[in-house]
Design a protein around this nucleic acid. Structure first.
Lengths: 130, 130
DNA sequence: ACAACGTACAACCAATCGGTTGTATATTGG
DNA sequence: CCAATATACAACCGATTGGTTGTACGTTGT
């Protein structure tokens, strides 16, 4: 919850919010690729791809290692898991809400205690219009 | 895979890339909140918060239902899971890479079959043309 | 009826984004 | 040595973003 964590989350989600970057990430998770090799795969300038790689690297989603004149990029699966964990945290928050609703239902009707599924609708008062 | 899927991924990750929006999402995953209630929690104008809510809604991360003059926002955990699944897919891609490396190691040295670690070096055979 | 409330949206602004071209700097191969 | 290759980075540009204020409109409570 610290400010630095939020900065990191900003960088991670922002890095993932571009389809070219997601594609690059897929490629470098599957195996090392030089920036040139990556650039050849897209219909844009080398500089554009290099900037995408830099964004991914700054977010910590990929690492680079020098090999002669090439920079070989590699996907960092731990960073991907860190993002997945953030989403799991969100799911936990949601589960807490459902648990609270279940408690209310259990309180209102002493029956039906013991079923706690993904729950079709969180609140009984459903009426949508706009 | 499809273009629409990528559009959706763009919207989801973009929506999550702002800390105010992530905070709003946490609140509405924990329980319904009106836009006004949400706006009161942040040091910015009502209009700014309303736009953040709109971004989250367009991405499908939250839904709104009208209750009198209020719009009650609710987090959609299925959308959160959809994002988590995208990250799981990325992890699978990475696992495929590790499996390939393991195969190479197993092929090179008939011994040591059965240890599968995060792998310090990704093998010198970077399969790529130029 | 009508003032207050809750919401939506338009118009505007500075900052950032995703792309471009151009330039500089290593590294490699002939 | 020199040319080609691989990378990095600056400067620029149009589009988008995150914020603002102002306005409009339906709903509610008195």
């Amino acid at each position: 919850m610290t400010d630095t964590d939020e900065d990191r989350a900003d960088a991670l989600f922002h890095a993932l919010s571009d389809r070219t970057r997601r594609d690059i990430l897929r490629r470098v998770l599957a195996g090392e690729h030089s920036v040139s090799t990556l650039a050849a795969a897209y219909d844009m300038s080398f500089a554009a791809v290099q900037k995408h790689v830099a964004v991914l690297q700054r977010a910590g989603l990929i690492t680079k290692r020098r090999s002669g004149r090439e920079q070989l990029a590699s996907g960092d699966v731990d960073a991907v898991r860190a993002v997945a964990d953030m989403l799991t945290d969100l799911e936990h928050i949601w589960r807490g809400r459902i648990a609270r609703i279940d408690d209310l239902i259990a309180d209102a009707s002493p029956h039906t205690t013991g079923d706690r599924q993904p729950s079709p609708q969180p609140t009984p008062t459903a009426s949508e219009e706009d």
